[in-house]
Simulated assay, not measured.
Amino acid sequence: MGTNMSRSIDYGNLMHDAMRSLIRQVLSDVAENGLPGAHHFFITFDTMHPEVELADWLSDRFPEDMTVVMQHWFEDLDVTEDGFAVTLNFGDNPERMYIPFDAIRTFVDPSVEFGLRFETQDDDDDEEDGVADIEDAPARPVREAREADKGKSAPKDAEVVSLDSFRK
């Protein structure tokens, strides 16, 4: 068996495919059975992705990326091979949106400190592809959110967090 030097294993893309598949499985389970326990998700996605479907006022407000929180109030979660649609509440405005898995930049479940980050070509600050260290997960904003939750008895609507709050 000869070796073919021009062929190489693209671990970066394989990792991204595996991560998207994991997100698809998690969201499919939530679509069928609801969110288990304290689990909830911060999902940051690229609002410029051609297949993203988003209300105009939201894409105007978030011209690059946007983070949605799936926690207390979401409806009609519909997961397909390529992405998911969900209705979220933005200050009493229920908005339907479609997010292709390819548009997702980070997926974090703060309840178990699990985070995935998809590196893009324009992230030159750090070369490695794939799974975020736990340090990349938004530990600080999550703690702040928990503190804020203690003061409020009513469950909060889906909130919009800018990605800057995730960056160190």
Rank of each mutant, 00 (worst) to 15 (best):
G2S: 11
N4S: 11
M5S: 12
S6K: 15
S8Y: 15
I9G: 03
N13F: 05
L14I: 12
M15G: 01
I23K: 00
I23R: 06
R24Y: 05
D29S: 07
G34N: 08
G37M: 08
G37I: 02
A38F: 04
H39I: 12
F41I: 01
F42W: 09
M48Q: 13
P50I: 05
L54D: 03
A55W: 08
D56I: 10
W57H: 09
S59R: 13
S59K: 11
R61H: 06
D65Q: 09
M66G: 04
M66R: 03
V68L: 14
V68N: 02
V68I: 15
V69N: 12
H72N: 11
H72W: 06
F74T: 03
L77Y: 06
L77S: 14
D78A: 15
T87Y: 01
N89H: 13
E95T: 08
R96E: 11
R96F: 09
R96M: 01
Y98H: 14
Y98T: 13
D102N: 09
I104H: 01
F107R: 00
F107G: 02
D109Q: 05
E113M: 10
G115H: 04
L116E: 06
L116Q: 00
E119P: 05
D123F: 15
D124W: 07
D129I: 09
A132W: 06
A132Q: 07
D136V: 07
A137W: 03
P138M: 02
P138C: 10
A139R: 10
V142G: 04
E144I: 13
R146P: 00
R146H: 04
E147T: 09
A148Q: 01
K150V: 10
K152D: 06
A154H: 09
A154F: 12
P155D: 08
P155G: 05
S165G: 01
F166L: 02
F166M: 11
